[in-house]
């Protein structure tokens, strides 16, 4: 899926927290979204995810506006994800269940995803009793299990250990065909992981360039 933002503004009362004249996001790319606190990074992701509506301007998804069909192809993982009050397995299975996938296929996909993120041993655990790193891995597994076209990550690796960060990065690198927008304050991580860097400052786009250009 390609995403195009044209003259997008997000304002609360008189204060505009994001103003983007034009931004094109191509499928299969990993974008690093950087900028100081309050630069508008999270707002940008929430607008693309359809969690908030722009005050003005348009966001086109393969030329279409936001719809129930589009929303099913985009997912968003926050820095402090909410895991459902059920087992880890059921959390990861949830997006497949609401897509009416058969139980056999659902079980297979969930098991594969848990294995990919090395959390098979957590399958039966209460999802609300996990550590920060485990929670992020479960949230990522739940977001990836239905193979979205667009993955939006709001600082998913903040406050977690290096091994978990490396595992998450390797999983993201191997998801071909998916666009990823990844907010990070870690310059090394952006350098390692992302194809293109989107830099925001004071709610405005100051740079959107391929790495090294």
């Amino acid at each position: 899926m390609n995403i195009e933002l044209i003259n997008v503004q997000k304002c609360y009362g008189d204060k505009c927290v994001l103003e983007i004249e034009a931004l094109n996001l191509d499928k299969q790319q990993i974008y690093g979204v950087v900028g100081e606190n309050g630069a508008g990074k999270s707002t940008l992701l929430k607008l693309i995810a359809g969690l908030e509506a722009p005050s003005s301007g348009t966001i086109a998804y393969d030329g279409e506006s936001m719809s129930s069909a589009v929303i099913k192809r985009i997912t968003y993982v926050s820095q402090t994800p909410y895991l459902l009050k059920r087992s880890v397995f059921e959390n990861v299975a949830y997006p497949l269940k609401i897509r009416n996938m058969s139980p056999e296929r659902c079980n297979e996909k969930v098991k594969n995803m848990l294995a990919m993120l090395q959390i098979e041993s957590l399958a039966k655990r209460n999802a609300q009793m996990l550590s920060a790193g485990e929670t992020q891995k479960v949230a990522l597994a739940r977001a990836l299990v239905f193979e979205p076209d667009v993955l939006l990550l709001d600082e998913p690796t903040a406050n977690i250990d290096q091994d978990t960060i490396e595992l998450i990065e390797s999983v993201l690198r191997n998801r071909h065909g998916m666009m990823t927008l990844h907010i990070s304050h870690n310059r090394d991580q952006v350098e390692r992981l992302c194809d293109t860097v989107i830099k925001l400052s004071g709610g405005r786009l100051v740079q959107a360039a391929m790495k090294g250009t």
Binding site: A49, G50, L51, S68, I71, K72, R73, I74, T75, Y76, V77, S78, P81, Y82, L84, K85, Y94, P95, I98, R99, R142, A143, F146
Partner: peptide, 24 residues
């Protein structure tokens, strides 16, 4: 709000949101 957001970002519709709210 957290429950609603999870449901929406995983592709749930308005009916899914209501059922998830009741379950959670």
């Amino acid at each position: 709000e957290g429950i609603k957001r999870v449901c929406r970002t995983l592709g749930g519709n308005a009916v899914d949101v209501i059922w998830l709210l009741i379950a959670e």
